[in-house]
Amino acid sequence: MNLSIPVIVMAAVIGLVGIGFYCLLVTRNMIRVVVALQIIVKGAMLALLLAGRMRGQLALGQSMALTVIVADTIVAVLGLALAVQVKRRLGSLDLNDLSSLKR
């Protein structure tokens, strides 16, 4: 089996996005939603780097991936802090319990 590097990286991108998207759709746990977002963003970062590499402008892809890493980390921090607060106030991490947004 002779697969080129772009094909392998694209397979990783498609796999990561698919797995993360599925988890995002089926999970009801707030912390697991953050896990799913992290998985999707890793796929997006690989796609950015691959696009830069294939265009011969890897530095551009890297600088964009750096921005994505920072934004992704902030999203994770905020998501986890929200989950902790929801657990403290409602006593549950279940997304169904948040549907009414009542305390």
Binding site: M54, G56, Q57, S63
Partner: peptide, 26 residues
């Protein structure tokens, strides 16, 4: 969307380096 890219080879690296791109271009 990305299937048409399968035939493209990895391009030779050109342009500015990462540090220059980050601190000057972005």
């Amino acid at each position: 969307q990305i299937l048409p890219l399968f035939d493209l080879p990895l391009g030779s690296l050109q342009g500015a380096g990462f540090e220059e791109m980050l601190w000057s271009g972005r």
